[in-house]
Design a binder for these strands. Structure first.
Lengths: 219, 219
DNA sequence: ACAAATTTTTAGCTTTGCCTAAATTATTAT
DNA sequence: ATAATAATTTAGGCAAAGCTAAAAATTTGT
């Protein structure tokens, strides 16, 4: 598999997760910052290789083989992210671009050894699950902070948007995975929330809340 | 710099080290398992970018810029090799191909952090020196085992040939960096040596001896 | 329903890095 | 010194992966 093929497979995988229908050519093009015509070309190639199901004008979806391939790439990406944070002290807004390169290194043994070095992590630094060697993973039971009621207590377990700008914002405001969060108030007017995080009170916009995942504390 | 450009620069660097004259097109082609005509194409491109000095039919040599570039690549390659051996328990015959991929990852910060994680190693697992951030390195004072006299004592510090087949041979025969070696006898007829290595006596061919570096013990 | 708008595909072109075959330059051997 | 040999370059092509512009199919709005 070429690097480019891998990137397409990964993109189709990520787009496919949201809704279950076929992914559109334009959506792929937009996410990959390329042109729809280029996407069509590549889709045909991937279709030849039985990695995607494709009918002209009908969008595209991953085959089982394609899904397994995608999971392998996601596994590599997320393991490298853990490595960068845990072993090389990178901050979570710096790791994506580097992991994007590292995910294309070809060596099963390397990835298995890395997995072992990191002690078989189940989640990456953004809280996303890491598929195991067989592609199996468990999505964590979590809710967006914007969708829980007043009084809810939980722990921050992930972010939906993992852009550098959002992650840097979180850093500046001392919000990190593992922190205890309680929703104290929800403002009717603009949907902003008053929360306590790690004993401190702060006000966050609806936009922030709708990109933070929490795991609600057991009673 | 593209991956391919980097590979050419690295190859020219390695060929340039042996003798100081310009490197021939054919030599590059052979080492890279490509055709001389392809080499000519790339050399022109590198020349445009001021990475090599080139005059038609006269061979090629690295400019200062090219040399610095090459040292950066070599630094990355060798640091990754140390990582693979020290942190992921790879054996020294397995690391070359993987490091060949990892050396193209683009991130200065990554390499500096890796350097730190490994505690700023000065030599790679084959005993070759690792350039520092500025491209500086010190060649170790060493001799080929085939070129010392009877009675010489020293410690194994490197290999000249680092092909997998040679390295596997060394593993099978329990020869590794750091081992104490003494030359007990040299056979006139075929140049084979009788040595003691880590207290054990063994017979090695001239070919083996001419690919093992030792650092002669101080008196 | 069907015209307009949008999405997707096709056709044809570009660049990178490689190839083969032929031409050119350098080296060597007598 | 010059013919033969070897090394190198040029010319022309190919495949991958991208692009633009135009054509075709689908979806949407009224």
């Amino acid at each position: 598999m070429t690097r480019s093929e891998e990137n397409y497979i990964k993109t189709i995988f990520h787009l496919g997760r949201q809704g279950m229908e076929a992914v559109s050519t334009n959506a792929i093009a937009e996410l990959m910052e390329t042109k729809p015509s280029s996407v069509t070309d590549m889709i045909k190639k991937l279709s030849e290789k039985d990695l995607v199901n494709y009918k002209r004008y009908q969008g595209v979806s991953l085959t089982d083989l394609g899904t397994q391939t995608a999971l392998g790439i996601v596994r590599k990406h997320r393991l490298w992210e853990v490595f960068l944070v845990e072993k090389l002290d990178f901050s979570w807004d710096e790791i994506h671009d580097i992991a994007e390169q590292l995910e294309h290194i070809k060596s099963d043994k390397l990835i298995d050894r890395l997995d072992k070095l990191l002690d078989y992590p189940k989640f990456d630094p953004h809280g996303d699950p890491i598929p195991d060697k067989n592609g199996d993973f468990k999505e964590r039971d979590r809710k967006l902070l914007s969708e829980v009621e007043i009084g809810t207590k939980g722990v921050c377990v992930g972010v939906k948007d993992s852009s550098a700008s959002f992650l840097k914002f979180l850093d500046r405001n001392h919000i990190a995975l593992g922190h205890q969060i309680e929703v104290l108030e929800i403002e009717e007017f603009d949907g902003s929330l008053n929360i306590s995080i790690n004993q401190n009170n702060m006000q966050i916009s609806h936009q922030i809340a709708s990109n933070l995942y929490i795991k609600i504390n057991e009673q």
